[in-house]
């Protein structure tokens, strides 16, 4: 299931603005990789280019290669819809579909993909995903109530359940806990630790402790100034990045002395 990602000399543009320059990195399968760095350094931009969500923005484009298990995502014969099916995404703000119940939200990916599944299969997948997202016990009695009626933390776990219901190989998470309280954050972090066994996970976070707690490897990005492109400064095992970073800027950022 899990797949590794190799990024090779990736430049990411918004129209003419170069937002991320020359990123090359390897993201290991069955591990959690954290992206850290100051605001505006292009973490979200890079993350979105890993499942071709970047090009949804008008004028946005990418140069370079993103290879998942030997397949370049930006090769001309690749269908972005197929890419997004195997590389799921969880957003910063919880975004359940407002017209749908909790059950329909989780099943949305399965149904809207056009896969013909029996109702029993769908129900089973819904339950597994909700259990996997640590939400089952809280919602099992009200699966037919609107998803938008849950609390923010529950909504975020609902979105995670929705993302894992389609059984992607890779899960991208853009600051998934930034709108959550410490308890929900803990639930999501535990979930990430569990999901590591089956998925390749990339998480963007501004929370150093969180990066240290949940990630195996950590990538630090930085930006030279406004209008300049963001760059990958260094990447390595989390333990090494947090104890003996090889670049001064990483050390400054992690120790809270940035800017």
């Amino acid at each position: 299931m899990a797949k590794r990602i190799d990024v090779d000399q990736l430049n990411i543009y918004y129209k003419d603005f170069l937002a991320v320059e020359d990123v090359s990195m390897n993201i290991e399968a069955r591990s959690v990789t954290a992206f850290i760095g100051p605001s505006g350094c292009g973490k979200s931009t890079l993350l979105r280019s890993l499942n071709r969500m970047h090009e949804v923005i008008p004028g946005a484009r990418v140069e370079g290669k993103v290879v998942i298990d030997g397949q370049d995502l930006y090769a001309p014969n690749v269908d972005p819809v197929g890419v997004r099916r195997s590389v799921g995404m969880v957003f910063q703000k919880p975004n359940p579909f407002p017209t749908m119940s909790i059950r329909e939200n989780v099943a949305a990916g399965l149904k809207l993909n056009g896969t013909k599944l029996r109702k029993a299969t769908i129900d089973e997948l819904v339950e597994r995903s909700l259990v996997g997202a640590n939400l089952w016990n809280e919602v099992k009695d009200r699966l037919d109530k609107p998803g938008a009626g849950l609390s923010g933390g529950q909504q975020q776990r609902l979105c995670i359940a929705r993302a894992i219901a389609v059984q992607p190989d890779v899960l991208l998470m853009d600051e998934p806990c930034s709108a959550l309280d410490p308890i929900s954050t803990l639930a999501v972090e535990e979930l990430i630790s569990e999901l590591r066994q089956n998925y390749t996970i990339v998480i963007v976070t501004h929370n150093m402790q969180q990066a240290a707690r949940v990630s195996d490897r950590c990538a630090f990005f930085n930006i030279a100034g406004t209008g300049k492109p963001g760059k990958l400064i260094e990447m390595g095992p989390t333990q090494k990045i947090f104890s003996t970073p090889s670049v001064k800027a990483t050390e400054d950022y992690i120790s809270g002395r940035f800017g």
């Binding site: 969500m53 949804v56 997004r84 975004n95 407002p98 990916g109 993909n113």
Partner: peptide, 11 residues
Amino acid sequence: ELREASLALGV
């Protein structure tokens, strides 16, 4: 966000 959520599911 709703469009992006749906697209990101591979819809």
